[in-house]
Design a protein around this nucleic acid. Sequence first.
DNA 1: ACACATTCAATACAGTCGTATAGATATAAA
DNA 2: TTTATATCTATACGACTGTATTGAATGTGT
Lengths: 196, 196
Amino acid sequence: MSRPKSYDRQEAVERACQAFWAHGYTALGVRALEQMTGLNKFAIRTEFSGKEGLYLEALRLYAERAAQFAVEPLKAGGLDQVEEFFQGLVGGSSPMSSRFGCLMVNTGIENAELKSPALEEVSTVYWSMLYRAFEAALQTGREDGALKRDLDLAEAAQGLVTAVMGIHTMNRVSGRDDGGAALVGLIRDLLASWRT
Amino acid sequence: MSRPKSYDRQEAVERACQAFWAHGYTALGVRALEQMTGLNKFAIRTEFSGKEGLYLEALRLYAERAAQFAVEPLKAGGLDQVEEFFQGLVGGSSPMSSRFGCLMVNTGIENAELKSPALEEVSTVYWSMLYRAFEAALQTGREDGALKRDLDLAEAAQGLVTAVMGIHTMNRVSGRDDGGAALVGLIRDLLASWRT
DNA sequence: ACACATTCAATACAGTCGTATAGATATAAA
DNA sequence: TTTATATCTATACGACTGTATTGAATGTGT
């Protein structure tokens, strides 16, 4: 009963995610977004209520993908899965590694002062999701008796999250999807030292 | 023979450094910079040849300070100094810790796509300076016989640099100058495991 | 074939960006 | 006191920002 949309919503969000990932939020203008997503200004407004709405949608997609591909295996597994997770942060064979770093890290740094409550929440939820996943994996390791008993689980999980940020940051700063490989190596050694 | 300047150059750069540190480059407009630095538009142009020139000056000051307060002790010391360095990245008593993270990390993430050769170089020089400092400290540790012989020094130094980025990033994302404390703890454990 | 509903393309808008310019101002030397 | 020089304040500029509006285009249902 009306003119069909000239774009595929899902694909548009996907492309927007990639675009924001590479260029950041502020630096990417609406007119550039049109080209990279196949959307038009009107659609950005009506479908996502503006640029920031599209950004939030892209962030949610990113978080969803990360939860699916990286975090779920973590919660189900133990120490080995933690090691695999870190391996996935570098190198070309993984969907979690990128020369542009991590969209959530980039967002957190760029918008630390933006004070958009919606952004703040997406970020917080994302990192606490990762924290709990590490916590669960370590807890599993402990219950399996694979982990030393004197390890502070909360500090370990939080420290791992921070290491993840470092790897992503180094990936972006170096412009290479394996820029953070050295820290992945150190984390592997650390995990080994935690094993019984 | 002319009207005296209404600002102190050194202090202006110092304030600009703080301002860019907190707000980033793009998000901080020239008109806001005037207020926060005590400079005026004319001075920004004549004294620093524009906003980007002032930014570079601020980055150089930041790098200089970091070299002086944090990196020099590293190059002169050994494993203990590496540990002290990481301790200095979190908590209120250190000039290297901040809830705004690290100016160089923020710059590297925000401007990964800016392609300003000058910025690129300042960043590269900074991180390789830190890398060499870690390398030197570890080398000293090795020569003192305090370090296990099978440790890959290059990977260790590069991994430590990446961990530093992670701590700064977590500081900024969490908005706390001790946000990265957990990873500092893990790094301390890791350093301990390297000792003979 | 026609009316209806929705999207599209193009343009307009007010606001901000960094920079450039011009007249007023302040100091030191003549 | 006058002159020269440099800095200050204020305004102007074109380019850009994200958003809003308007008439044309493109479908479906009658």
